[in-house]
């Protein structure tokens, strides 16, 4: 498949000698306008890749913070259609920052896979992370997405052993998302040493950039990960700032403020 914004971004960062700051925020949380402000503000706050969460009623791999964010988004009337609209509005001001749509399969299946891929591509989506589509279900969306020129980004976890890893990586592209702990989003932070060992193991099988997530909350933690991975993913901590905001404006400032702090941590790590 041809090069995507994701490929270009990781290539550029490699040349620059630093890791990517991968952010996750939920579409439509707490409402469309505020979420759009947040997404528009993220690149200037240091985000290198933006994962936009697609809300779902039954997020079985998410912890309480992202569950609640999803419910806030659904309560504000967020649908898949509106999520794509948000991304296309973002694209009017930013044609460089990669956007990854992350969520669960049913809203996409309900929308219709073929139509979804056309509309997602048109909106400016670069990649997909669909939590409940393991490689066993590649025919559903992974292969059609690849054919449509979208990166299908796979999760690898501590339970993904050497024997299984090639299967997980087979049709994935863009980057590999290493879930650093067995658990739901927002759980305890991983030990950097365990992560380093896992990455050494995974690199024997792939040349894809690896972004590490689950449990990262601070600039310091992200910097630790930036030393050993091509990217650090922060989601729950950002999403929690939306909940803490006293009003929409405050929510935007809180999210972007934390993003700047974490970005500074990641940028402090220079790689040769």
């Amino acid at each position: 498949m041809s090069e995507t914004r994701i490929d270009r971004r990781f290539k550029a960062l490699k040349a620059e000698g630093r890791a990517a700051f991968v952010t996750y925020v939920m579409a439509g949380d707490p409402n469309y306008e505020t979420a759009l402000e947040i997404v528009k503000g993220l690149p200037a706050a240091g985000a290198d890749v933006i994962e936009v969460g697609l809300p779902f009623t039954d997020p079985m791999a998410d912890g309480p913070a992202i569950q609640k964010a999803g419910l806030r988004a659904l309560a504000s009337g967020t649908t898949l259609k509106k999520t794509l609209k948000l991304i296309s509005e973002f694209r009017t001001s930013d044609d460089e920052t990669p956007v990854v749509l992350m969520g669960y399969y049913n809203p996409i299946y309900s929308y219709g896979v073929d139509q979804f891929l056309i509309d997602a591509k048109a909106a400016g989506v670069d990649g997909l992370i669909v939590v409940d589509l393991p490689s066993e279900e590649d025919k559903e969306l992974c292969l059609p997405a690849r054919d449509a020129g979208l990166n299908f980004i796979r999760l690898a976890t501590p339970t993904t052993d050497d024997k299984r890893l090639p299967k997980v990586l087979a049709n994935s592209s863009g980057f590999l998302y290493y879930v650093s702990i067995a658990g739901t989003t927002g759980a305890a932070a991983p030990s950097p040493r365990d992560v380093a060992n896992a990455l050494t193991r995974i690199r024997k099988t792939t040349d894809l950039p690896i972004a590490v997530g689950f449990g990262l909350r601070t600039g310091e933690q992200a910097a630790e990960i930036a030393k050993i991975a091509e990217g650090a993913v922060v989601g729950t901590a950002l999403v929690e700032q939306v909940a803490l905001g006293s009003n929409d404006k405050d929510a935007v400032e809180r999210v972007l403020g934390l993003a700047r702090e974490i970005s500074a941590g990641i940028r402090s790590v220079k790689k040769t």
Binding site: A61, P134, L155, T157, G183
Partner: peptide, 12 residues
Amino acid sequence: GGQFVAETLMPL
């Protein structure tokens, strides 16, 4: 049917 679960659970 099928196996629509998170990767963490697949090996198990």
